[in-house]
Design a protein around this nucleic acid. Structure first.
Length: 272
DNA sequence: TATAGTGTTATCGG
DNA sequence: ACCGATAACACTAT
């Protein structure tokens, strides 16, 4: 599920609910979610500290930490990636779900913690949980975030042009490359390309400056819309990514293919 | 029962 | 070394 808008929702949950609360317990026993750490490593690093800030770049989040004593010694950063199915949830001391952001989440009822993979418990008994059925998310200390490209929500027109100015990859593959531009996933990419009327398989070296500009504007508009709407599933083209659907703009049949290794849908008439 | 899936990454080949 | 394509990862829902 999570692309940039969902991760931003998770970031805001942490920012308003989980900062400056003393950590008294950590469940880092899921060795796959917490790879490459051994069980107990993250726990030992966080016990007796607090989260002081939460940052996001693209789909990656990380929290600054510090001790709770008078000296407030800085600790390691706590990296959280939601993967394909992750969600951050805050519970109170009775295990009652207090906050989980507002984006759509397929099937799960509030308070269903069956797929909890990592948690922090605070001094008052409340907790932060990472719910992640597919377990492709990740929690780690001091995650490397320097390699990520500019955040897709804040990228400048010049940075956007530079991102397309090298190589021969299909434009959709480049939009999905987190080292080139951080935050765009499969659904957001299809929406951006549809809005800009660019065929996903077109090599970046064949794009005109006009098309590059349309893509930059479409990226901005799509992310703003998805953040405001509460997730990428609220984007216009998403309900039409299915067999037999027709373009909501021109009525032509939607085409399906694989680009950048991902299932891709586009308008067979307008996106050429 | 078989398959697809809103993400990342190691590996392979050109 | 750079760039792009592919498979693998883990697990659920259809």
């Amino acid at each position: 599920m999570p692309e940039l808008p969902e991760v931003e929702s998770a970031r805001s949950v942490i920012a308003r609910m989980a900062l400056d609360r003393a950590i008294v317990d950590v469940d880092d026993s899921d060795t796959y979610e917490c790879r490459p750490h051994a069980p107990g490593e993250i726990r030992a690093a966080l016990l007796g500290r607090t989260l002081t800030q939460v940052h996001r770049r693209g789909k990656s989040m990380w929290c600054d930490t510090s001790g709770v004593g008078p000296d407030r010694v800085p600790g390691p950063t706590l990296g959280i990636h939601l993967g394909m199915s992750g969600k951050i949830v805050i519970a109170d001391g009775h295990g009652h779900e207090v906050d989980g952001g507002d984006y759509w989440e397929r099937g799960r009822a509030p308070g269903d913690y069956r797929f909890g993979r990592f948690s922090l418990t605070f001094a008052d008994g409340g907790s932060l949980l990472l719910i992640d059925p597919r377990r492709l998310g990740r929690v780690r200390l001091d995650p490397p975030v320097e390699a990520l490209g500019p955040d897709a929500q804040e990228i400048t027109p010049a940075q956007f042009r530079a991102m397309l100015a090298r190589g021969t990859a299909p434009v959709k593959a480049r939009l999905l490359d987190q080292d080139a531009i951080a935050g765009i996933g499969n659904l957001l990419a299809d929406q951006v390309l549809w809005l800009a009327k660019v065929k996903p398989s077109r090599p970046v070296n064949f794009l005109s400056p006009t098309e590059a500009n349309r893509l930059a504007r479409a990226t901005r508009r799509s992310i703003d819309a998805a953040v405001a709407g509460g997730g990428v599933h609220t984007l216009g083209i998403v309900p039409f990514r299915k067999a037999g659907a027709h373009c909501p703009r021109c009525g032509a049949e939607m085409a399906r293919g694989v680009v950048g290794g991902r299932t891709t849908w586009w308008c067979s008439r307008e996106q050429v």
